[in-house]
Design a protein around this nucleic acid. Structure first.
Length: 957
DNA sequence: CGGGAACTGAC
DNA sequence: AGTCAGTTCCC
């Protein structure tokens, strides 16, 4: 430790500091911990840290406040010249009484020797008083008031950073200009006083190990800092040019102990602390140092009166500033979202969103979505879904958007995103805008509706429409029927020709038909009415309205075409058995159908339109189906695809029209067709949460769904259901096709179990594990090479891990040491003596594996010659199916090999059978044998051959 | 001044 | 071996 001396220009005398700049510990403490045991009493020197204006013996001022002071109280204290300030240079110094500078001995550690020792140790009546820590309560008349709080965030600097300056601790209202600084005011007091500022912890009324320093003449002076105030100068103390030095961790204890000691000594007014006190202080410090918040401090302001005998008496209760947070730390630093991968998402939620953020702590961060009304009140909030491991290197968060409250909003909703740090409820600022898009169902319906209407209302386009609709004129029109007749026949036909009972839930549809015969009548009337005008569409007739099921909407392209087609249908039907007419009409209806599709925006066909109409347009839809069926235009229905590649089934699922699913299937719509984004109708049903559609799909007779189809996100419907934690849906899907659980998504190679693990959804995990093929899925690895268990260990909670460990054949034990990539090399090198480093495909071997391989290959290629093959296979089968034989073989295999006591035979066998990569799965030969039993022919047979080669195939005989 | 980023141990 | 808080360095 070195004493620093230099000449103080202001004071005209030598100044001495204890700051040991070679110390890494920060400022006050010496590098040697032993120095901490030294009592300040060993050094009787007197130090004063005081303002240049300090005048300890200033006579008491008159009672009446000075005009200056009154002005000050008026309000803007801050920039007052009369405010007592810690000035940037020269205004603070350590003053050595009598100009002496050499009394300090090398053992003394008086780093922040702020006390005027003479005064300090003076009077016995000071003993035991304590403004903060002590037990004696004081009634103070004077009051300290914080006029300006310090800024909330400030970067704490390490000592090693303290060459240049890095800016000072400003006031909370500080701007570039004017700057403000922490400032306190002493009220209700007359006479000179000292206001002290020191650094405290935020959770305890105890000093902080960090240093509050003031830069002065190339030196940093540590806290506490004292400012003298008086009537003349005003009672405002402004602490400017302070910095906070982050004490290195290893010195926390030392620094804290020192500060506490100094403080206690000061309070006790005694030179020496008793051994007991020192001990207590030690323990206390140890406790405090352990969990002191190193990234948060606060300023403590105290006021003292200096008595004639030079002792210091507190005159006001200490006050504390708001916490000052370390801007640098992830625990207390600023939160900010720098970038969003996408500013929009579906109201359904579950969209992947990537946030680039300023340093965050993965254990202490949330992503909040919220919506505020005009008054700034929160009307909705929800949190994005992610795990700790989704926080990438503290700077990015991969999360899934929450669903919006109202999934049926028709327009976009603008909300905000912010980060929240739960530990201190800090929020990122500013919040980032995020736009929720209505679900696809609503978007497409809206588009369909508005676009169709637009098309029809633009009169200019009616030219070609005219032409295409002229054809009905060529059809005989004499068979126009009256309305009531018509109504009846249609009802009959629905039931008879179209087999409605098979197509639709019979109850519901019958009900509608029976209840609403009047409505149905209207439907027919208007249809006929339109058609009856004269087959040509007049401009004014386009303005008339069609009433459907009591709802009124504008006549649009769709209704015009439908009307036309219905008319043809009516005519043909009335014409009876007229093959020629029928065929011509088929063509005509087909061309009308196609023509409509061409003109319709988004290329929605009549079927798309009809399906997506509100549910009360059921009869219209049924009639359309019927007509299409009637004219044998199933191919149209099958092919019908709009610009998005959506088939009618897609639309039905999207719009939750479950009752159309069977009719559409019957009409020939393919259930496995993928739309423009790779989604099958089932994908959409899962995505949009259309449970009835899902059920209908899965239960549709004669329909084979391909559950392994993946959309453009690489997900199957099951994957989506798992991601949305839809247990029932997942269950239904798995029941439909158990093999679907093994399908890996193409995003990260995760299969259903992996994904359930990621969701930490125990029910789903159990559901999947209860399905068949358990072995396959347990050993499956994702793109990162992780099995579900490993993934669970990496990303899921203990419950999931435990659950999985239980189902792994070896309780997951061997997986602890399993290294996916290197396992093979390890196995090889542990068993192979000499060669075979180069070709890892050939198991290193004493037995003639190559030969077996050749046999195997030739047999494999030659299907006819498989006598041997079935022989060994059957032998193995017998072996494995008999319990005693199985056990005997297993026991044999569990024995160590002759050449390596640590290597059981089964492991070597696994090696030879190219099953090395699964060895970790098995704790003993039983596991491997069980596995082999479940394998396909080839693997099974290969195993049998190797076993035979080893002479173990007949082991049981 | 204010900030980014590299380095360094400990887990 | 990777991660991260803590530290140091430097633009």
């Amino acid at each position: 430790m070195h004493q620093q001396q230099f000449f103080d220009l202001d004071q005209g005398r030598n100044i001495s500091y204890m700051n040991d700049c070679s110390s890494t510990s920060g400022y006050s403490s010496a590098n040697s911990p032993t120095s901490m045991t030294q009592s300040p009493s060993h050094s009787p020197e007197t130090f004063v840290l005081q303002n240049e204006f300090a005048n300890l013996n200033l006579p008491a001022m008159s009672n009446s406040p000075s005009p200056q002071l009154q002005q000050l109280r008026g309000s803007p204290y801050q920039q007052s010249h009369t405010a007592n300030q810690l000035l940037p240079s020269g205004s603070i110094c350590m003053e050595i009484d009598g100009g002496s500078n050499n009394i300090l001995n090398g053992n003394t550690n008086f780093g922040n020797m702020y006390m005027p020792v003479d005064h300090f140790y003076a009077t016995p009546q000071n003993v035991g008083f304590s403004p903060i820590d002590g037990s004696i309560k004081h009634e103070y008349t004077a009051v300290l008031h914080i006029a300006e709080q310090p800024v909330e965030k400030f970067r704490f600097r390490y000592k090693s950073e303290m060459h240049g300056t890095h800016g000072s601790l400003n006031g909370i209202n500080s701007k570039r200009t004017p700057k403000t600084f922490p400032e306190v005011m002493l009220r209700n007091y007359k006479g000179p006083a000292v206001i002290r500022c020191s650094l405290f912890q935020t959770n305890l009324d105890s000093p902080h190990s960090h240093q509050l320093v003031v830069r002065k003449d190339e030196r940093d002076v540590c806290d506490p800092h004292d400012l003298h105030v008086s009537q003349e100068r005003g009672y405002v103390a402004q602490f400017i040019n302070m910095g906070i030095i982050h004490t290195a961790k290893k010195f926390i204890f030392d620094e804290l102990l020192k500060k506490k000691k100094d403080r206690l000594v000061f309070q006790m007014g005694r030179r020496e602390l008793s051994t007991k006190q020192v001990q207590e202080l030690h323990q206390e410090t140890e406790r405090e140092a352990k969990d002191m918040n190193l990234n948060q401090v606060r300023l403590c302001f105290e006021a003292f009166k200096i008595e004639d005998n030079h002792s210091w008496t507190p005159i006001a209760a200490p006050v504390f500033s708001n916490p000052i947070n370390n801007r640098k730390s992830a625990q207390t630093g600023e939160l900010r979202i720098t970038r969003l991968s996408k500013p929009t998402g579906s109201v359904m939620g579950n969209d992947e969103l990537i946030l680039l953020v300023e340093k965050v702590s993965k254990k202490n961060i949330k992503v909040r979505f919220f919506e505020e009304n005009d008054d700034g009140e929160t009307v909705w909030e929800s949190y994005a879904k992610f795990r700790e491991s989704d926080v990438h290197h503290q700077y990015a968060i991969v999360c899934q958007t929450p669903a919006y409250v109202n999934k049926d909003v028709e327009r976009e909703v603008d909300v905000s995103i912010e980060l929240i740090r739960p530990s201190d409820d800090e929020r990122s600022f500013p919040p980032l805008p995020f736009r929720y898009k209505p679900r696809d169902a609503i978007v497409s319906r809206k588009r369909r509706r508005t676009c169709s209407t637009l098309t029809s209302s633009s009169g200019s386009s009616s030219g070609s429409l005219h032409n295409s609709l002229e054809l009905p004129k060529t059809v005989p029109q004499q068979n126009v029927v009256n309305v009531s007749q018509h109504d009846q026949t249609i009802s009959q036909e629905f039931g008879r020709e179209f087999h409605l009972d098979q197509l639709i839930n019979p109850e519901s549809f019958r009900k509608i038909l029976e209840q609403d015969s009047a409505e149905l009548e209207k439907l027919c009337v208007t249809d006929i009415g339109v058609l009856e005008t004269d087959g040509q569409l007049q401009a004014d007739s386009a303005d008339s309205h069609i009433h459907l099921q009591g709802s009124r909407y504008n006549r649009n392209l769709t209704s015009i075409y439908l009307g036309e087609i219905f008319k043809i249908f009516e005519i043909v039907r009335r014409a009876g058995d007229n093959q020629e007419l029928f065929e011509a009409s088929c063509k005509k209806v087909e061309s009308l159908f196609n023509d409509h599709t061409q003109r319709n925006v988004n290329n929605d066909t009549l079927l798309h339109e009809v399906i997506s109409q509100r549910k009360d347009a059921l009869k219209l839809a049924i009639k359309t189906f019927h007509v299409i069926d009637y004219f044998k235009l199933q191919e149209l229905a099958h092919m019908a695809q709009n610009a998005d590649g959506d088939s009618c089934l897609h639309v039905a699922c999207q719009q939750d029209r479950e009752h159309y699913i069977r009719p559409l299937l019957k009409l020939g719509c393919s259930p496995n067709q993928q739309n423009g984004t790779g989604n099958t109708p089932l994908h959409l049903a899962v995505k949009e949460d259309r449970n009835n559609c899902i059920k209908l799909f899965l239960n549709a007779p004669g329909v084979k769904l391909d559950l392994s189809l993946m959309n453009d996100d690489g997900l199957t419907p099951l994957h989506m259901a798992i991601r949305q934690n839809k247990y029932d849906v997942a269950k239904n899907l798995i029941n439909y096709d158990r093999s679907s659980i093994n399908v890996a998504n193409t995003k990260d190679g995760n299969n259903a179990l992996h994904m359930a693990v990621l969701e930490q959804n125990v029910e789903l995990i159990v559901l999947i594990l209860d399905a068949e093929n358990r072995m396959d899925i347990l050993k499956s690895t994702n793109s990162a090479g992780l099995t579900p268990l490993q993934l669970a260990r990496a990303k899921a909670d203990a419950r999931c891990v435990r659950l999985l460990e239980e189902v792994y054949p070896d309780k997951g034990e061997s997986t602890m040491t399993w290294i996916p990539v290197n396992i093979k090399e390890e196995m090889d090198s542990s068993s192979a003596e000499d060669d075979e480093e180069s070709n890892s495909e050939i198991p290193p071997q004493a037995i003639k594996t190559e030969e077996i391989e050749m046999v195997f290959k030739t047999e494999h290629d030659d299907d006819d010659n498989n006598q041997d093959k079935s022989d060994v296979k059957n032998q193995l089968k017998q072996l494995l199916s008999s319990k005693p034989k199985f056990e005997k073989l297993a026991a044999q295999l569990n024995e160590p090999t002759s050449h390596d006591a640590n290597l059981p035979k089964w492991k070597e066998l696994a090696d030879k059978c190219k099953l090395q990569k699964y060895v970790w799965l098995w704790s003993s030969s039983e596991g491997m044998l069980n596995y082999v039993q479940q394998q396909s022919n080839d693997e099974y047979k290969y195993f049998a051959l190797v076993l035979q080669e080893l002479g173990m195939l007949n082991a049981s005989d």
